[in-house]
Design a protein around this nucleic acid. Structure first.
Lengths: 189, 189
DNA sequence: TTGTTAAAACTAATATCATTAGTTAAAATA
DNA sequence: TATTTTAACTAATGATATTAGTTTTAACAA
């Protein structure tokens, strides 16, 4: 058997620390220097845990997507139809609000086509598909619906986070109105 | 009067060069070093044209937003109602396709709350408001509609650009279907 | 308990950046 | 032609990511 020395840090502790920096100061401040300082180690030591800064960004993206998925899935239990769609929608934007840095990280992977990143995202798509299946959409229309749903969630969160919505108009009300309208429009033949 | 020496580079030539780098290699490659090399000057000389890398990113964001606005406004002439909404929607995603780097730049301003950045974006919001007015939406519902419309366009473009849509399903058809459904749902009382 | 092994830390060094300071060249206006 | 403003330059600094090679640490086997 191979010895598995448990010395120092677990990858999850590292991602947690990196997530904290990202949430508080933004992804721009997630540098190997800053991360190492927070962990009380030297920057080169981080290379034992991931492949440089790009590797860290990739791992952070997956970490964030997984967390996002978990919160969506949690809110989806025990509800169905429109209520379920609204539930996972709110969970999505709530995640972006609570973890602005990690949400930013989910969009900052060096290569979004990467196998692992795709796989993490696929779970969210799958969840969306399952929730939207309640509306019995036919063939291609079902696929268009999923694309639209994702576009709304992602666009809404991004715009909200970057201060794109200026008006003093309740944001949660906007999201609910938008989602309801989209579903209604998609169901109409 | 103050002499205005025209020597060397115009700010627009610089932004054009920076935009080229961004479109071909991504915003990550837009460094002062790379930009200076492309312009055949030394990196510090760029500080005569903008305030460091942050200043460049801000100017690129505004430059991109302006360009995006122009293309949308161009496609909006001579059409009305749903056709107009579809026209500016297509112009939006087409811009992101033709200028992936500049579109990336529009989201990468160091401070999205910045006065100049806000002002550039306001023109697009205004155009959207004007086009959506054809549907006679009342009060707050009109504002929710604009928010939803922007979310769809931004989300769709971002996801398309980062390879978020995997299925072999026509993208333009998706966009048209999504926009039509959203409008239909918003018009329904 | 003790030796082996693999993981994870370290030091030292390098290359690439952005950035600042101070200086020089160039061109448009008066 | 002289002045003034702009925009280029050189030189230097500090921060960064990254590589190479080495040492320490801790789990496992003997």
């Amino acid at each position: 058997m191979s010895p598995r020395p448990k010395v120092g840090l677990e990858i999850n502790e590292i991602l947690e620390a990196a997530g904290e920096i990202a949430d508080v100061h933004g992804m721009r401040e997630v540098t190997l220097a800053n991360l190492a300082k927070k962990l009380n180690i030297r920057p080169p030591s981080l290379y034992n845990h991931f492949e440089g800064l790009g590797g860290l960004r990739k791992k952070m993206a997956i970490y964030g997507i997984d967390l996002l998925y978990k919160e969506m899935a949690y809110e989806a239990v025990g509800v169905s139809g429109e209520a379920a769609v609204l539930a996972i929608s709110k969970a999505y934007v709530e995640f972006a609000r609570k973890h602005p840095g990690l949400y930013e990280a989910t969009l900052l992977a060096p290569d979004m086509e990467d196998e692992d990143v795709q796989q993490a995202g696929a779970k969210i798509v799958e969840l969306s598909v399952r929730v939207l299946q309640a509306f019995d959409l036919q063939g291609e229309r079902a696929l268009h619906t999923v694309r639209g749903f994702r576009s709304i969630l992602h666009g809404f969160s991004s715009l909200e986070q970057s201060g794109g919505f200026k008006m003093t108009l309740d944001l949660d009300e906007s999201l609910e109105t938008i989602i309801k309208a989209f579903i209604k429009g998609m169901r109409a033949d």
